[in-house]
Write a protein that binds this DNA or RNA. Structure first.
Lengths: 145, 145
DNA sequence: ATGACATTGAAAATCATTTTCAATAGACAG
DNA sequence: CTGTCTATTGAAAATGATTTTCAATGTCAT
C-alpha cells in the first residue's frame, strides 16, 4: 500500500485539502530514513518544489501531528525533530552520529508499568521509550579509523 | 545530606562561583516536586529574591545541565522542562494533570537492548524511558467528580 | 463551470533564548 | 583584612524559531 496516499486520504477525511505543497511534504516525511526538523524538511521539499514556503511546512506538520501520523523524536538538545509515528509496541532507535532513525518492535512493558503503579499509586496511561546508539554504517566508519 | 549544598559544591569544584542567585535557583530546583521550565523557575525564584534576572536562570540551568545534575523531561508539546537528573536505572513518571514528577526504579532493560542490537545491527549506548499518567491525588479528584 | 472556503507565500509579529556590556561581587593571595 | 583578578550579574539588544496576518490562489462539492 502507498503510505503517502494513505496520509493524504486521512488529511482529506479530516477536512483538509490535498495540495501540491502538501503532497511534497508528506512524501518527503514518509520516505525519510531519519527524523527531520522543520528546516531540514523545508530544504528537502524545496528541491522538489522550489516555491514552497517554510510557513506551509510548519502548518502541515501541525496537521500531521494532530492526526498522530508523525511524532517528535527526542535528542540531547531537545525534540524539534519529527518522524513517522510509532504504533503499538514500536519505539525509535536513533543513530547519534548520522541521525538515521528506525523503529523497532519493543517488548511489552506492561509488567513494568503495573509494578510502577503498585509502587507509586500513579495510574499510568502512556509511555515513551527511545534508544540511542550507532547504526551499522557509523559503527563501521568508527572501527576503520 | 543536603542536596542543595552538594550541588553548590559541585558548581564550585567546576570553577563556578557560588552566588546568592545561584543558591536560590539550585534550592528551588532541588525542592521542586515537578519539572519546571525556565519561566516557572524564574517566577519561583523571584519570590525568594525579587531582583533575580531571567538571564541568570538560563545561565545557571546551562551549567547544571553540563554537570548532569538536571535533565530535560519530555512532554507532548516538547521538552523545555527540567528536573533533578535520574541516576542508574531510575526514570521519570510524570502526572499529565498536575505535572508532579517522580523518579521510579525501573527494570534493567539490557536484555531488550541486546535483542534490539541483534535485530538491527545498531550499537546501543543510551536509552530514554518515561511514563505518563495520573498521580494518586489527581486520580482521586477525577473519581470524585 | 461555479461558488464557498481552505490554503498559499510573503511580510510582520511574537516568543523563547542568547549575546553584549558595564557594574558588581566572590575567591584567593598576601 | 585588603586588594586583585575575574566570574557573574541584570538590563537591553540581538537572534532564531515559530505563529499570525493578509490578499491572492487553488481545491472540491455541487
Amino acid at each position: 500500500m502507498d503510505t503517502t496516499q494513505h496520509w493524504l486520504d486521512l488529511l482529506q477525511e479530516n477536512g483538509c485539502r490535498v495540495t501540491a505543497p502538501r503532497r511534497v511534504i508528506v512524501e518527503t516525511l514518509v520516505n525519510s530514513p531519519r527524523a527531520l526538523d522543520a528546516l531540514d524538511l523545508f530544504d528537502l521539499c524545496r528541491q522538489a518544489q522550489p516555491g514552497i514556503g517554510l510557513v506551509t511546512v510548519y502548518r502541515t506538520l501541525e496537521k500531521l501531528e494532530e492526526l498522530d501520523l508523525i511524532q517528535r523524536v527526542h535528542r540531547e538538545d531537545g525534540c524539534h525533530i519529527v518522524m513517522k509515528a510509532a504504533v503499538g509496541h514500536q519505539h525509535y532507535l536513533v543513530c547519534t552520529s548520522c541521525g538515521r532513525t528506525t523503529l523497532f518492535e519493543g517488548d511489552d512493558i506492561s509488567p513494568l508499568i503495573r509494578s510502577v503503579e503498585g509502587q507509586t499509586g500513579f495510574r499510568v496511561d502512556d509511555h515513551w521509550l527511545q534508544l540511542f546508539g550507532r547504526c551499522p554504517d557509523c559503527c563501521e566508519k568508527a572501527d576503520v579509523q
